[in-house]
Amino acid sequence: MDAASLTGGLRDPARDGARAFRAAMEVMARPGTIATLDHAAPPAPLSAAAGTLLLVLCDPDTPVWLAGACETGAVRDWLAFHTGAPVVAGPGDCAFAVGRWDALTPLDAYPAGTPEYPDRSATLIVELDRLLPGGTVLEGPGIAVQAALPLPDPAAFAANAARFPLGVDTFFTSGTHVAALPRSTKVLV
């Protein structure tokens, strides 16, 4: 572990953590809205927004899967030092997964909860090249009429929504931007 892993955490863990969670909660409660998350400086290839989400939500209770190019020594060390979260080898028993869309797919490989406990499901952090308003049209809880997000594979998310109340919930990150798509959102394809 080199000294760089020890840096890049939340400057003021309690207050920055609260502000970052509040932004994450707002985007999860209002699918289609985009917020700024720049409270952490994780090692490449993680974006600031994805790194902040990991620091705010992960701890020794949450197995994390680093998918594809995110699986580097620097990311592992950084995550271990700042969160203590165990890193797992695949999607099957993770609570959180982070990576680019092609490394994370397919969605049915993740824990989707059980009919009695649908909350026991994974949360994905999908790194996108850009996160701009517009894209696939969304309806459902948290949306007054309609909203839109640039989903990488609308059909996969429509299939995930069709499993409600089972399914995974997703954050999209790019640079310092974050948006979210809970399983309850209807994806119009």
Binding site: P13, A14, R15, G17, A18, F21, A24, M25, M28, A29, V56, L57, C58, D59, D61, T62, Y117, P118, D119, S121, T123, P141, G142, F164, P165, D169, P182, R183, S184
Partner: peptide, 30 residues
């Protein structure tokens, strides 16, 4: 006291529960 009384690990646990609760409206998350 820590900010808002609770320790950070407790807040993370509650925050994860809140996110799942928002994703499954009306379902009671333990």
């Amino acid at each position: 006291y820590n900010f808002a009384y609770l320790d950070e690990q407790t807040k993370r646990m509650i925050r994860r529960a809140i996110l799942k609760a928002l994703a499954i409206p009306g379902y009671q998350v333990p």
